[in-house]
Nucleic acid binder design. Sequence first.
DNA 1: ATATAGATCTCGTCA
DNA 2: TGACGAGGTCTATAT
Lengths: 246, 246
Amino acid sequence: MESIAAKIKEALKRNETIVIAGECEVNYSGRVEAELPIGERLLLIKADKAFLVHQPEGHQPINYMRSESKHQINVEEGNIVIRSQNLANKDFMKVIIKKVHFYQSKKLEDGQKIRVVGTEKDMSEMIYKNPELISKDFKPLSMEEHTKYGFIDVFGHDKEGNIVIIECKRFRADLSAVTQLRRYVEKIATAKGIGLEKVRGIIAAPKITANAKQMLEDWGYSFVAVNPPASYEKYDKNQKTLGNWE
Amino acid sequence: MESIAAKIKEALKRNETIVIAGECEVNYSGRVEAELPIGERLLLIKADKAFLVHQPEGHQPINYMRSESKHQINVEEGNIVIRSQNLANKDFMKVIIKKVHFYQSKKLEDGQKIRVVGTEKDMSEMIYKNPELISKDFKPLSMEEHTKYGFIDVFGHDKEGNIVIIECKRFRADLSAVTQLRRYVEKIATAKGIGLEKVRGIIAAPKITANAKQMLEDWGYSFVAVNPPASYEKYDKNQKTLGNWE
DNA sequence: ATATAGATCTCGTCA
DNA sequence: TGACGAGGTCTATAT
């Protein structure tokens, strides 16, 4: 344990990425109080001093400290004890490691950014460039702008001179999408000093829940079925089937 | 590469937790299309077949496949290629590993659940048991119930016979908290066939944003400052300072 | 720093 | 399975 503790300290100083598999218990205090009894987990400390505790199942870390935390390594009663604190966030974590299955660390370099296509913003852009997806008489004026009226996805008008506000959802629109749209419509009407009947609110999404549709129509808004951008499908979904899928 | 690929296959069959540090590029296709050029990362495959790609910085995995995915390991042109698919979610990922810094795998056992104190539910409970935190004449009737009126945090009435609806936020209440409250108030008023003036809407939170407060008051609702439960502070925040914080 | 909203959100829970 | 809301949400962006 002493030698592993020493390695962890060295690796922290060098901003290496650290991986430890072992038995541990975890206590956290900060935005909540949390305790996790002993079990076998994977511990990961990143170059930015984020500290993740992963159980063998589940997508998310079960405990963590965010970036820019500080860590203190000690050996106490034969266990490695990692105390972490983030004074800015006022949170604290203690991990008592009672058994180590393996330890590894390595300085990793990665300046790459991910490129993503098919987000809600892409959907707004598609509608802005193809207004006929909404209706024949829709004329977009601005898109995804943080205007003084708010964070409206697509903003425009129709032939009758009504203002049109579109809220896009990439998947299924729900109640909160409707209240979001309603908030924008009311804000615009107030800001421009015009009646609510001169502002059309539209939700553009592939689907909408029944309750959301009801509320939408109760408030005089409407739903237009729009699929998110098909994206460039450069990735082969007909994956090779040599070998076995495990 | 061949031997590491063989180890990965074996570890997958045994539901081990797998860790690989190395250089890779990643492509994902599913809910969006994403590509991540080559860089040094940590790859983690869990017992439930979730597959996380972590960059050396940042809390979240930069790419991932969710639980119950299937993985196929091949060696192609000297690289390890992991193809993953999740037919239920219709998503696909390909990771091309061009260099391996280290590989480890281990069967991990952990049936423990985390215990958390200080959530929004705890805050609702505190208000339910201590209604004077809201006002002298507030009488709670139900708490955190999925009533037919919706998921209202605390529900009750006052001496004047008004219905009182409380929406709790653990941190700072924002615009969406106000629209959420408004939705509940309107739903109750409609369901009971009473006027909006007979339903009081209250946001209970430690703080509220200026815009949210404005909207709240515009709609005739009110804000009551309530701190989330102090929780049991069993964890020593005056952490030992032996050794160095890194 | 705060405010706002998206996310391949994830996760739990209930009808 | 869908719907709904919380989350120690995290992350990006604008003010």
